[in-house]
Amino acid sequence: MNWLAGFFGDAGHWSGPDGIPARLLEHLEFSAAAFFVAALIAVPLGMLIGHTGRGALLVVVAANAARALPTLGLLVLVVLLAGVGTVLPVLIPLVVLAIPPILVNTYEGVRGVDADLRDAAYGMGLRGRQVLFQTLIPVALPLILLGLRLAAIQVVSTATIAAFVGLGGLGRFIIDGLATKTYADVIGGAVLVAALALAVQFVFVLLDRVAVSPGVRRVR
């Protein structure tokens, strides 16, 4: 606890380019960028695969590979191959790791919609695209949001590790603290990242409350 007081009580930690506010902002910027790119790729792709049923094998392979791939190794390899210096290479593994949870859950959500419901929508005269947007997506929304939440948390935690290959953000406190054996910084950084991860979790719980249709939620 003394370490925490030392870390958060130090005025030097609250200003400047390596202060907590600046690091937090960096962390949010990288995470948001990677998250949105991944979502832009994976959500439409998952919907397409779930709706048409084509390419389901891709989803299975992506799901398994994502769990087995070591984050740190991927980060180090991609950054070494692409060259250090800019931020862009670090974003590649973040995006790659965020895609599978979104893809898998979007696919599962759209594909798992009750067949009766889908037939009823067609029976009421909706076309393929209308069925997807007016029936399948609203019903699949809880699972799609779950995928997005898992991806967001994955991105926030991987961005922490990415400090090792030179990315800024809150991971810097942990990585630099470990390198210089300043354990107060390590613990302080860890607490900050934990708070950020929980905040992300909380935002998605709220989003779920707001966005999911009450009728869908009752069935769950």
């Binding site: 926030v156 935690s157 922490t160 991860a197 929980l198």
Partner: peptide
């Protein structure tokens, strides 16, 4: 939801 590195550090 906590990153592994966070728990390791703690």
């Amino acid at each position: 939801s906590l990153p592994s590195l966070v728990l390791f550090s703690i």
